[in-house]
């Protein structure tokens, strides 16, 4: 369990100083992106472009949470891919079913 050991070597019973700069940096990025989303909600009329902007910003936020907070960026490549590859199937499902929803809509109206 070497990866649980503190980064710098210290004497027994001594607690190393916290290393939290990166945590607050990630926090401000997340808050900034959320604020940007609100700017778009109020300054732009609903459109496909606005929705695309929201989706891109959401993926940015998801990246920062998963990569930094969940530490996935610092895991092995094998773990990263075994989490990410199955997610690609979900994108396919989403596109397929939204298309289906549009088809039902067109059949009704």
């Amino acid at each position: 369990m070497a990866h649980h050991a503190p980064a710098q070597s210290t004497h027994v019973g001594e607690i190393p100083k916290p290393n939290v700069g990166w945590i607050w940096k990630t926090f401000f990025v997340l808050v900034g992106i959320t604020a940007l989303e609100f700017v778009f909600v109020f300054l732009m009329d609903p459109s496909t472009l606005r929705n695309s902007i929201f989706i891109v910003l959401t993926i940015f936020k998801a990246f920062f949470i998963v990569a930094e907070f969940m530490h996935l960026k610092h895991e092995t490549k094998g773990l990263i891919w075994s989490v990410l590859i199955p997610m690609a199937l979900l994108v396919w499902l989403l596109v397929a079913l939204v298309t289906e929803g549009n088809a039902i809509h067109n059949a009704i109206y």
Partner: peptide, 9 residues
């Protein structure tokens, strides 16, 4: 995804 389908319907 269900939300997406139903909303577009």
């Amino acid at each position: 995804t269900t939300y997406g389908l139903i909303r577009h319907r």
